[in-house]
């Protein structure tokens, strides 16, 4: 068993929290993982990504080879396209629609959406609205984890325990918001999956 994921976004969007929850869940299962992160200068609003590699066997490379990812999950539409070369032909592309327009010339967003929708297994949705509905726009990262969870070789309960552990220091309300965000996106992703099959 192996599952290779790229989590993409813009520095400051909370990519590392997704990776941390995933890591905790994998360790709890007794599996192996490698998780390459971006620290330093790029975290200041630049393009960032994390490679997460889960397996029941030892993982060799810290980075996923091109064409090897089972899933690219992106907090931002243009960032999703940046990692297409890593995506396996039967991999999933899950993308939050809200652009982060922090560069001088941000491209037209409609062609970006179109390009995403040409990918056979895609899920393009308004994750930010879903997070807001769950209680906080800041829960976008757990929305994206919820969507990704349908492909991960981990039970929802193990991931939810990871979310509990991650947000417990911030209080019960924050935990509940993040769990709600996770569950809503997971349900939507299940629906999308059955549509495509």
């Amino acid at each position: 068993m192996k599952c290779d994921i790229i989590i993409a976004g813009v520095g400051g969007q909370g990519i590392l929290s997704i990776a941390t929850v995933l890591g905790r869940a994998v360790i709890a299962k007794g599996w192996r993982l490698k998780q390459a992160e971006v620290h330093g200068m790029s975290q200041r609003g630049g393009a960032v990504q994390s490679h997460v590699r889960i397996s029941d066997q030892p993982v060799a490379s810290d980075v996923i080879p091109l064409g090897g990812a089972d899933l690219v999950v992106s907090m931002e539409p243009m960032e999703a396209l940046r990692y297409l070369p890593w995506l396996s032909t039967d991999g999933w592309l899950m993308v939050n629609k809200t652009p982060v327009e922090n560069i001088a010339v941000y491209p037209e967003v409609e062609p970006i959406y179109k390009e995403i929708e040409t990918w056979p297994r895609n899920m393009l949705f308004d994750g930010e609205a879903m997070a807001a509905e769950a209680g906080s726009a800041r829960a976008l990262n757990m929305v994206m984890l919820g969507a990704a969870s349908i492909i991960l070789p981990l039970e929802a309960s193990v991931l939810e325990a990871g979310i509990q552990a991650q947000f417990a220091p911030k209080g019960e309300q924050v935990v509940e918001t993040n769990l709600a965000a996770f569950r809503a996106a997971r349900a939507l992703a299940e629906k999308r999956k059955s549509e495509l099959e």
């Binding site: 790029s42 922090n102 560069i103 491209p107």
Partner: peptide, 14 residues
């Protein structure tokens, strides 16, 4: 592998 579409712009830190 699929190429990066031409519309993707660099996003340097700031």
């Amino acid at each position: 592998v699929r190429a990066v579409p031409g519309m993707v712009r660099p996003r340097p830190p700031q």
